[in-house]
Structure formats: C-alpha cells, structure tokens
Design a protein around this nucleic acid. Structure first.
Length: 427
RNA sequence: GGAGAGGUUCCCGAGUGGCCAAAGGGAGCAGACUGUAAAUCUGCCGGCGAAGCCUUCGGAGGUUCGAAUCCUCCCCUCUCCA
C-alpha cells in the first residue's frame, strides 16, 4: 500500500494542515519511515467524530510506512487542558480515566493496525504519575518562560476568565510528553488540533533545549461545518464512534445530511478516495451532489464500523428515503454498491411486547419511549406541530393509540420530522 | 489577608418583592419551501395523561400572604490591593 507522494504533501493537499513548522524540513524528515504521535484525552469512553481527523491523519501516516503512536492522556487527563476553552474542565478521577483508556484503545484498533509494533498505544500516566515535583521543576520547569506562556494564544481566552495553576501546567506536561516520546521512541513529529499549537511548539522547544534535536509539529484545522457549527453536534448530542452510543444508521445519516458546501472538503478529510476523483465533485449540484453525500456517508461508516455495517446502514437509508442514483463514474474508487436492495433492517428498532401492542400505546408515550423525543412533553409538542408520523402518516392527535393495527411486515415506522426514524416490532 | 464585583433555565445575557417558567440573542426542534442541502418565513423550545399542578435562578436557612429579587451563614469565580 505504499504511495509515492510524501505524506506531508498528501495531508496538506487533503486539507489536514492548518499550521506546521518548517514544511520543507518536515517533508525531508518524512522521507524516511518515522514515528509520529497524537494525544487523545480520555474524557469519555468513546471518541466522537471530532476525533476523526486526527485518527485519519495517523492512518495516513501508517499507510505511508510511518509508525503512529497514539498517546492517551491518562496522566494529563487528570489535569485538564485549558487550551481554547472558556471554562475549566471537570477533573476526572483515576478510575474513570482507566476505563476510558481501555475503551479508546479498542476503538482505535478499528482504524490502526497495532500488530507487530506497526502502531503503538502509550499512556502518559506511565511516566507522568511518578514524576517528582521538585525534580520536574528543576529539569523541565526551568526551560519555560512564563512570559511567553502568558502570551500564548491558547491561554488567551482563559486569561480573561481565569486560569488556575493546575491548568497552566498542562503545557509543560504535554511538552514533557513529546520530549519523553522523542527520547524513548524516537518520535519527532507531533500532530494535533489547531488549539494544540502552543503545546506542540512548547514540546519542540523543550526537545531542542534538552536534547539538541529538531522536532516537528503539524496542526489540523478545527473542523466545523459550513454553517459554523462544531462537527458532530446534533439534537441528540454528539455523534459518537461507538455503535452503542450512535447507531451506524444514525452515523450514516449524519454524513448524508452534510451541507453542500462541505462535501468536497469532507471527502478529502474523511475518506481515502483519490484526490483526482474527489476534485471532480466540484461544481456538482442537487441530485448529483446528494449522490456524493451518500458515498461520503458510506465510506466514513465503512471506516468506522466496517463494510457490513456501512452496507446495512445504506440499505436502511435506501429503504426509508428511497434509492439514489449513483453513476458508475462518480468517485469510482468507492466500493459502495451502486445498486442495492432496499431493506430496513438497519433502522434503529425497539421491540415491544405483544400485549402492549395489542392494547395500543398513546403516540406521545411511544415516541418518548423509543427515544425519538426527550420527554413526553417534547413528544406532545412534536405531534401538535405535525412533525410525527406513523408509517408515513401524520399523527393528528397527541394520544392517538399506536399498536397492532399499524404493524406491517417491516414493523411500525415512527418518524420524528422528516429524518429521524425508528422502528417498532413485536417481541 | 483587605476592598469591590459576580454566580439566572443548553450557552450568552436581562430581570432587584407579586404581571416570572423568568426579556433578548444564539444553539436546537417542528412546519412551509426544497434536493434527506443551504437560505428564508412561521411556530415551539423545564417537567407532568396539561384544567391545573410540580421543580428551577450557586448551597443552606430566615423574613413575607408572596422571593430569582430582602436578610443571615456557607461555597465558588473575577478585579484591585497586600
């Protein structure tokens, strides 16, 4: 799977690079197989699609023969990164973090090949927790200028609202991580979100001072949608990579609903389809562009949940929303089946007992129960505003009974609005 | 440690005794329009089988017929001084 181009060029051309230290030097460095790392904070037991860009950057690295290191911040997670945030993050306790670290490792294995040392996962708790304070101050602290730190962009926001000492230290810890990885793993490239720039540069400085070595940094643009919203925020919360938190079907649907203006950019960032093909998407509109969204959704879902799940989600979407025409020559490298059966199996489903279905359940109760609405009140509102459908028929009355009479071969299809869908079947 | 300012519903931010489930904006949701897009317009936007009731304005008490608003103590944040 080696490709000819230099990874840096690949990353750059696909829109991964927001800032970087000397591009020429990085390119040269990456001519040889190297080690690079990105840190992930174990703040939850699953990553969400905001982490997809860093993950895929590592995948690019691996595909080009480099060795990615995933650093989970079991140690730094205890401190909390203030970069770019307005408020202090809740401090997590060690137990939670350990659980999260394990979950993240599993999730990342979906994307990266950790076999035979082709990629590594390290936890900075390993070296941070045992640090002695005085020793750390003398060794590391002396290299940091408070004046410079205060000037850092990443602290700017927090300087206005308040920053406490533990958070102020975060930069030193992350810099130390980088130094540690350079020393023990020969890792001289760190990547991260653009809000990490200050922390990355701090590490580079530390490496130069302590090791007399040159290290490199690349940051990714903070991905937002064209309408300015953060990636992956929806009514029901974040879009998670874990299929338990966000079903592959909903995950797929999230991408299908991509803003027109984001399609090309996202194809570059979130899929591995060749650039030349992606660029041909430019200028497409309407139906044709929608076809691209389907492919985008399929590709990202396949990467995250595997081809089978992607196919099922795609079939489900087709079953619910209808078939889209996918021309053979549109993004031809995509392995998406161009024609497909319409099945609804992938639609999130709730099983209800025969008795309950026989008796019928008031619509608002049902919509709440299957999770389409966050409360019974919300369900009433939805129905009263004409946004609730049972088998594509608008529900007129908030407590209209839904039950066995509505059962079809495919179950009962509940829709909240035009896009959120849930299936009910008899247990 | 001293002096001031402040903590309001998802976020920002009004409200200083009843008309407050709390202005306004943002986010979000729904409808119309569409292409499962955007923009726009309209409605909704604490909970409850909804008349009415219940829970919310940092926390705990208190005053009052009645408190987000007044008093006491506590916790937290910011600014200036030491």
């Amino acid at each position: 799977m080696p490709e000819l181009a230099n990874v840096y060029e690949v990353l750059d051309s696909r829109g991964f690079v927001a800032q970087s230290t000397d591009p020429e030097a990085i390119k040269e460095h990456l001519e040889q197989p190297r080690t690079c790392y990105i840190g992930f904070d174990p703040t939850a037991d699953s990553l969400h699609i905001g982490s997809l860009v860093p993950i895929l950057a590592l995948v690019h690295m691996q595909r080009h023969g480099h060795r990615p290191i995933v650093l989970v911040g079991g140690g730094t997670g205890l401190v909390g990164d203030p970069s770019g945030k307005t408020e202090m993050r809740k401090l997590l306790d060690i137990k939670q973090i350990e659980g999260n670290v394990a979950a993240l490792k599993k999730q990342l294995s979906q994307f990266l090949d950790f076999s035979a040392g082709r990629a590594l996962l390290v936890n900075n708790a390993e070296w941070l927790l045992s640090l002695g304070y005085i020793e750390f101050l003398r060794d590391i602290g002396k290299h940091f200028s408070v004046n410079r730190m205060l000037a850092a962009e990443s602290y700017k926001l927090r300087l206005e609202t308040g920053l406490n000492f533990i958070e102020f230290n975060y930069m030193l810890l992350q810099a130390y991580d980088f130094y540690y990885l350079a020393k023990h793993y020969d890792c001289f490239v760190q990547m991260g979100g653009n809000d990490q720039w200050g922390n990355i540069v701090a590490g580079i400085d530390l490496i130069r001072r302590k090791k007399k070595d040159i290290a490199f940094g690349i940051t990714f643009p903070l991905t937002t949608t064209a309408s300015g919203a953060k990636m992956g925020k929806t009514a029901s919360g974040a879009i998670w990579l874990s299929s338990e938190k966000t079903s592959p079907f909903d995950f797929f649907q999230y991408w299908v609903n991509t803003d027109d203006r984001d399609v090309e950019r996202f194809l570059k960032l979130y899929t591995f389809l060749p650039l030349e093909e992606v660029e041909r998407v430019q200028g497409l509109e309407g139906q044709e562009l929608n076809a691209c969204k389907t492919i985008l959704a399929y590709e990202v879902t396949a990467l995250t949940h595997g081809v089978r799940q992607a196919r099922a989600a795609y079939e489900g979407a087709t079953g619910v929303f209808g078939q889209r025409l996918l021309p053979q020559d549109l993004l031809p490298s995509s392995t998406i089946p161009r024609t497909i059966e319409q099945k609804v199996e992938a639609v999130p489903t709730t099983l209800l007992s025969r008795e309950r279905l026989r008796d019928g359940i008031p619509a608002f109760q049902l919509f709440f129960e299957v999770g389409l609405c966050s409360s019974r009140s919300a369900a009433r509102r939805l129905i009263q505003q004409g946004g609730a459908y049972v088998n594509d028929e608008r529900v007129r009355q908030f407590d209209a009974p839904v039950g066995a009479a509505h059962l079809t071969e495919e179950g009962i299809m509940l829709k909240a609005g035009k896009k959120k869908i849930h299936c009910v079947r008899s247990a």
